[in-house]
Each structure stands twice: as C-alpha cells, then as structure tokens.
C-alpha cells in the first residue's frame, strides 16, 4: 500500500463516472428514438456501481488494518429502466398505434441533466484526489533534497 493505491482508486472512479457519462449522453441522444434493434422505443439505461476490494497481490499481506477497508469502484452492471414508455399523441407518426399514440423513450431530460451534473462533479472530485496523492508522493522526494 502506497500512494499509488490512492491514485488507482481515484482512476477506478474516473472510469466508472465516464461510463455513467456515456450512458447519460446515450440517453439524451435517444430522447426521441422510437425504433431500436430490439424493437420498440429506446429504454433509459443506468450504471450500477459496486464497491470492490483493492486487489494488490503481494502487498496485500503487508497492508494491515487500513488496507482491508479500501474499496475501489466498478460498474457491476448496466440496467435498463423498466418504467413504461411516455405515450405521446401524434397520429401522423409512422410508429403510432391505432389510437394515434406513439410510445416514446422513458427518458426524462431534466433527470438526465441533473445526473450529468453529479457525474461531472464526482469526476472532478476524483481528479482532485489523484492530484493530492501525486503532490504527497512528490513531497516525499523532498526528504532527500
């Protein structure tokens, strides 16, 4: 366990948040998509985060009490939102049902925007953490100056 562990932990979060950001932009891009390869309208997608123990092979035995509590983060699965599609009245639409309603994706633009802000902020926080770890590691080099 050294400061590179802190950097690796931050980078695992950066990867996870990037995945989430990709899903958010996919949701926003498909906010009006009525046709998908699976059939039916596009369904909102979300990433499920999971805390995973830091795997560090040899160093693990030397980590002691604090090492056992360290958790990186990983995307455990990507789930589809099961909520019903938004029904929009548009009889001229080619995908409209006999009553004139079109099944639109269950994506809420406001919700996605709010998610995007949290993803950005958490990403920034993790960049800060990685920088802090880097500065600490560089500071130790000053001992031998």
């Amino acid at each position: 366990m050294d400061l590179f562990t802190a950097m690796n932990t931050s980078s695992s979060a950066l990867t996870a948040e990037r995945t989430r950001m990709n899903l958010i932009s996919s949701n926003l891009a498909n906010v009006n998509t009525t046709r998908t390869p699976e059939g039916g309208p596009y369904k909102r997608k979300d990433a499920v985060f999971m805390a995973t123990p830091v795997s560090d092979g040899f160093g693990k035995a030397l980590d002691g009490v604090a090492g056992k509590h360290l958790r990186q983060v990983a995307v455990s699965e990507i789930v589809e939102d099961k909520s019903p599609p938004r029904m929009q009245y548009d009889p001229s639409h080619p995908d409209a049902d006999p009553q004139g309603y079109v099944a639109m994706p269950n994506v809420n633009v406001v919700e996605e925007m709010a998610d995007m802000i949290t993803a950005t902020r958490v990403y920034e926080a993790n960049v800060m953490t990685a920088q802090a770890a880097k500065n600490m590691a560089l500071k130790t080099l000053e001992i031998s100056k």
């Binding site: 562990t5 932990t9 979060a13 604090a66 958490v122 953490t129 802090a132």
Partner: peptide, 15 residues
Amino acid sequence: TRNQNLISSNIANAE
C-alpha cells in the same frame, strides 16, 4: 498515506 488511501476510497465510492 494510509489515511489518504481511505479518503480516496471514500471519494471514489461517492455514488
């Protein structure tokens, strides 16, 4: 250093 590792673990798992 160990405490720093725990803090980054907390921030990584903020969500």
